[in-house]
Design a protein around this nucleic acid. Structure first.
Lengths: 359, 359
DNA sequence: TTGAAAGCGCTAACAG
DNA sequence: CTGTTAGCGCTTTCAA
């Protein structure tokens, strides 16, 4: 039924060792023999048994993905990148969706076990310190995607620079009084985005003050959620003195921006006419809601992540790398840039049509 | 470094066979021995080598998922279900994201190879006829999720009944002239949703006519896309005579509904005041755009899919099953029901209906 | 350049 | 109930 290396060897009149060499492009085979073996293999449509190979060679040709399930579009896109690259180079992807840190650690430990996978892609979550020594001693290639740890290869987005860009954009549009809606400052992205916001303000000689920043309390998704966006915006809008001069808000994520949009509607505040908004992430909804935002190169992060992992597998001793990705400003409706003819002329815009969504 | 079954055996003072039995809950071990072995195993934090076990037992403890990449939320949710169930029973998930039928077939064949995976979950795509005989002869457990083939266990949504429900909802709200925006009739969901629409109309004594149905030309996503939704809606709205009396549209999917919404805005048609809309799928965007729609029990489909696959693995000879899922009406803004106090009062439904299975 | 043979770590059949 | 042993299909020395 199943055809094995023995069948091929017999049929080709060689030993199984030779067949093995052929299948693995080992140099020590004469061209003639190789051709003969390969043709037999094809004729029999022989395919090496993955597990047998794995057992003998101690390689699995698989990598595991440890990936949180709370979010959505971002991971899909990154995953798509990983996926495409995996298909290209022929490695298997073992998927572990994770709902909490404990699960993450569990799967991490499992993946660390000998002969399970050749490498690990760990996504977006804080890397459990309790695992770093084990990772090191097991010497399992590991790369952190959308995360950072000094001991491992990491891929991350330039949050600070992105936030700076977003805020500068608002400043260029003439806004002087720009608030920020942020998440919990305990997360790194939140800290960095705050820093970028501040950078932009100060670079333009505008005053920075935490009074204009709404920081989320600890909680669901660390404050990166619609509800917090809504209540922060409400707060911003209901404070009379602040409201008078406030003309723009930089929001640390698109989900929060959605909530902010809702709050604005409640208050009868027109976006972008009364207040301009810029978000962060470019989730799918942002496009439909016409949110101007900072887009992260998700797909590219995926392909690069796997590339990096493969590189690490090839050369375990190489110095640890940190790859950073620059987010891109996507101008849509909520920042008001499109109303500004002058501005439009020298700014790259997407082709999505602007709709007056807030009348 | 790596600890093997031999280490455990030696440490526990037994043979490796006994250790193996303990690890696999084989009955033929005395309670005392079992306890001792297990404790040693734990102490050494021994974990069987997956591949060695796979080689010897000819089981892999893994299933492959062949899943199209074009869509998003639906698959995420289903996947989450599969994922959770997998974690529960401890099977590995090997992911194959697929961009076209050729790739699907490629991965299918790969998965079919001996010893690769114990079973296959094939998602949403037409199952390649060229593979059914091979599947049968290889005897690899396979279940189709959101798809159907008479030879294999299938899980699907009751599209016809769902469409009927959606349309009836519109009728109950008093609409008499209800159009439909559909996809290409070459896909089964499109056909079934059309049939359901027709059922509802006829059950209420309303005239059914293909004049009121916009069928997509072949193309991207079989017409299940925003662009087609927009142009179909434009067409509906620009045809004077039709427009006069038209008060509602049933749309075969939420993505299309989004396009329709845009078209309505262009024409200055108010939703739901001038025209009521009901979509299908309940993608994430539907919630934010307040689209009334038919929700598919995605998560449950995922868990059930894996359950079914496990059942099939346990009993390969069992008769082929077909599990169907009833979509649920989610009332939001676009159908206008909320304007109707009476209606709201007796529509308190939110319980997901579980699968009814039939052979 | 090639064949033979020794494992990889485990399961399962076979004796005891 | 338990130890021993023969593979599972392949990679990889080691001789030839």
């Amino acid at each position: 039924m199943d055809i094995t290396i023995y069948d091929v060897a017999r049929e080709a009149g060689v030993g199984i060792g030779t067949v093995s060499r052929c299948m693995n492009n080992h140099p020590n085979v004469s061209a003639a023999t190789r051709a003969r073996v390969l043709s037999v293999a094809k004729r029999l449509s022989y395919q090496p048994h993955v597990y047998a190979r794995g057992l003998a060679s101690k390689k699995t040709n698989a990598v595991s993905l440890i990936i949180p399930y709370f979010t959505n579009y971002f991971f899909i896109e990154v995953l798509r990148g990983v996926q495409d690259k995996a298909a290209e180079v022929g490695v298997e992807l073992v998927l572990y969706g994770v709902n909490n840190p404990a699960e993450a650690e569990h799967y991490l430990r499992r993946s660390l076990h000998r002969g399970h996978v050749d490498g690990i892609l760990f996504f977006s979550m804080g890397f459990p310190e309790s695992c770093v020594s084990k990772c090191k001693e097991m010497n399992v290639p590991l790369v952190l995607v959308d995360g950072y740890h000094p001991e491992f290869d990491s891929l991350r987005v330039k949050n600070r620079e992105g936030a700076e860009l977003a805020t500068s954009h608002l400043i260029r549009l003439g806004h002087r009084e720009i608030a920020m809606i942020n998440a919990t400052l305990e997360t790194q992205p939140a800290q960095e985005r705050l820093a970028g916001y501040r950078d932009a303000l100060e670079a333009s000689g505008l005053a920075f003050s935490m009074d204009s920043v709404r920081v989320a309390p600890r909680g669901k998704q660390d404050g990166f959620n619609k509800e917090w966006g809504r209540s922060a915006m409400r707060d911003l809008l209901s404070r009379g003195p602040v409201r008078r001069s406030l003309t723009a808000v930089f929001i640390a994520s698109d989900v929060q921006a959605i909530g902010a949009l809702e709050a604005a509607r409640e208050f009868g505040v027109r976006i972008p006419d009364d207040i301009a908004l810029v978000g962060f992430d470019d989730i799918e909804l942002a496009q439909h809601l016409e949110i101007t935002t900072m887009r992260q190169p998700m797909y590219e992060m995926g392909t690069l992540a796997l590339d990096q992992l493969l590189a690490r597998m090839k050369d375990p001793g190489a110095p640890v790398t940190l790859s950073t990705f620059m987010p891109e400003l996507i101008i849509r409706g909520t920042c008001g840039a499109r109303r500004n003819k002058n501005f439009l002329s020298h700014e790259q815009t997407t082709q999505t049509q602007l709709a007056d969504s807030n009348t």
